[in-house]
């Protein structure tokens, strides 16, 4: 048997078997199959396994509606064993509602009903970027390890949301209900616009793509327009406003690293975030280099190769660290 078959040609053989191969690949595989009896018999073995494995499938399928009914029963049973019966919980809610109504009148009930909607927490996980539509139709794209929280259906006067980590917001316009993002003592207020917020431990950055955004910390605030950026340091009071030409911050939405005269250290910082890598810049002249190129969604290896070729620098590896010189 041909045990030393190359991994790539093995994948190709399976592609051929599953009818996923391109016409050129089909020609290649069929030539390979004809070249020896050994090759052909290897393929027949794969094909036999593939075909015969089909018999493991269930003969009878269970209906999902029936399964859902059984799931309902399962939940009820499990809840019965819990300390408070369901009807008692309901009674408590009613009591609470009655007392509130008695003490504070109808407006309090309205408030209670909105609280009842509960806080919503939307989290992205470690390796993934995630898009989510809020109740008002605004879309938030969370970078890795980010989260937003908001209360139910928002309230009547404003759309309040809290943010941890980095996210891009595309906010639906509503003049009567400003959209307010809270991060500890920093707040970002908009009416309808799109912008990116990066909220890290001691530094927060807001970059505006369209519209007008107001960024405040304590009594200080700045107004940002397109291609303007606010930087807010944890240990400083007033947000600082600068103009920004870099489009690098978009990478997690667009799958591209767009560099226009981008200093290498800036690109390296973004790459380390995106790939969870430990790239450092050595003591040489690399820190002063600038790069203009667009890197598509490639592996880190490919990205580093492009940087190396474009800038003519050396790449060393040492215990998981990648050093550019």
């Amino acid at each position: 048997m041909k045990e030393n078959i190359q991994d790539t040609s093995h994948d190709l053989l399976v592609k051929y078997l599953l009818e996923e191969a391109t016409p050129e690949e089909i020609v290649r595989v069929e030539r390979w199959l004809k070249s020896s009896e050994e090759n052909n018999s290897y393929f027949i073995q794969l094909k036999t396994i593939w075909q015969q494995s089909r018999m493991l499938a269930p003969a009878v399928m269970i209906d999902e509606e029936d399964a859902w009914q059984r799931f309902g029963k399962k939940i009820k049973q499990q809840n019965k064993t819990a300390a408070t019966p369901i009807y008692a919980q309901k009674l408590n809610w009613l009591k609470a509602a009655a007392i509130l109504l008695f003490l504070a009148g109808g407006s309090y009930l309205a408030y209670w009903l909105s609280v009842k909607q509960g806080d919503q927490l939307i989290k992205s996980t470690e390796g993934r970027v995630m898009s989510y539509t809020l109740p008002d139709g605004s879309v938030v794209t969370l970078n890795k390890n980010a989260s937003v929280a908001y209360n139910g259906q928002f309230n009547n006067t404003s759309r309040n949301i809290t943010l941890k980590g980095e996210a891009f917001f595309n906010v639906v316009a509503d003049n009567k209900k400003p959209f307010i993002i809270q991060m500890d003592d920093i707040s970002v207020k908009v009416v309808g616009t799109s912008f990116n917020i990066k909220n890290a431990f001691n530094l927060t950055e807001v970059i505006v793509e369209t519209g007008v955004v107001s960024v405040s910390k304590r009594q200080y605030s700045v107004q940002l327009r397109q291609n303007e950026k606010a930087i807010i340091f944890k240990d400083k009071n007033a947000p600082e406003k600068i103009s920004v030409s870099s489009r690098l911050y978009k990478y997690y939405r667009t799958n591209q690293f767009v560099c226009v005269e981008t200093p290498l250290p800036e690109l390296v910082a973004v790459l380390n975030e995106a790939y969870n890598s430990r790239i450092k810049i050595g003591s040489g002249h690399a820190a002063t280099l600038k790069l203009t190129t667009t890197l598509d969604n490639k592996s880190l290896e490919q990205v580093l190769e492009v940087i190396k070729e474009t800038l003519g620098i050396n790449i060393e590896r040492n215990n998981g660290e990648i050093i550019l010189n």
């Binding site: 399964a67 509960g118 919503q120 970027v129 995630m130 898009s131 794209t141 995106a274």
Partner: peptide
């Protein structure tokens, strides 16, 4: 690394039982 943005229907929303039911039936 994967930078693909997830389609919305694949996301569970806490407290939204109707979505939970849809997810259950779609994947069962």
């Amino acid at each position: 690394m994967n930078l693909n943005v997830e389609p919305l229907q694949e996301i569970l929303i806490p407290g939204e039982d109707i979505i939970f039911e849809q997810v259950f039936k779609a994947h069962f």
